[in-house]
Amino acid sequence: MWRRWGFFRQFKLNVIQLARLRSEPDAIARGMALGIFIGFTPTFGVQMILAILFAFLLRQNKIAAFVGVWITNPFTAPLIYGLEYEVGRMLLGLPPLGINHFGRDLSWSLGMQVGEPLLLGSLVLGIPVAIIGYSLTARLIPSLRLWKIPRWPRRRE
């Protein structure tokens, strides 16, 4: 039954793509770290475009950067962005926003009250997570290449 869920299938396909890249594990890990860092930034609809652009400009692995951005997916984005906001808010010493702030018209000042802590929190959390992602990817790629990944059986209709 879990094979029918698109999320698990996409995850498996991403792992297969990483394992089959013909680059050094260090190069793949650098691309993955770049993608993870960009995934942690509050660039909501353009993260994949930014990851490919920066991977091209910095001459990093584009596929690994593309895969790394998927750290923020519909399941993890609320947790990641909420944590980033709280970390940034605490570092800036701002009071928490109440629900009544969102009932009014959305304005530039409200955007700044949310955006500044979110941006600071994304930098504070994104850098260490990208470093952890680099080290994990660099160590896992050689073992993934040895692992024989079976194909899923096709459904007979």
Rank of each mutant, 00 (worst) to 15 (best):
M1S: 13
M1E: 07
R3H: 09
W5K: 03
F8K: 04
F11T: 11
F11S: 15
F11D: 04
K12W: 13
K12H: 12
N14H: 09
I16W: 08
Q17L: 14
R20M: 04
R22S: 14
I28M: 02
G31Y: 00
L34T: 07
L34W: 00
G39N: 03
G39M: 00
F40L: 13
V46H: 12
Q47P: 04
I52Q: 01
L53G: 04
A55M: 10
L57G: 07
Q60Y: 12
K62S: 12
K62M: 14
A64C: 02
F66M: 12
F66T: 12
V67F: 02
G68E: 09
V69Y: 05
I71Y: 04
T72E: 03
F75I: 15
A77D: 09
P78H: 08
P78S: 12
I80D: 03
Y81F: 15
G82V: 10
G82C: 08
E84A: 14
E84L: 03
Y85F: 14
Y85V: 05
E86P: 05
V87C: 03
G88Y: 02
R89C: 09
R89Q: 11
L92Q: 07
L92G: 04
G93W: 04
G93P: 07
N100Y: 10
N100D: 15
G103W: 15
D105C: 02
L106H: 08
L106G: 06
S107L: 06
W108L: 15
S109M: 13
S109C: 01
L110Q: 09
L110V: 06
Q113Y: 03
V114F: 04
G115D: 10
L120R: 04
L120P: 01
G121N: 07
L123T: 01
V124W: 06
I127Q: 10
P128A: 05
Y134N: 08
S135W: 02
T137P: 04
A138S: 13
L140S: 11
L140W: 09
S143P: 01
S143I: 08
S143T: 12
R145T: 01
L146V: 12
L146I: 11
K148F: 01
I149Y: 03
P150W: 10
W152S: 12
R154D: 13
R154S: 14
R155L: 15
R156Y: 08
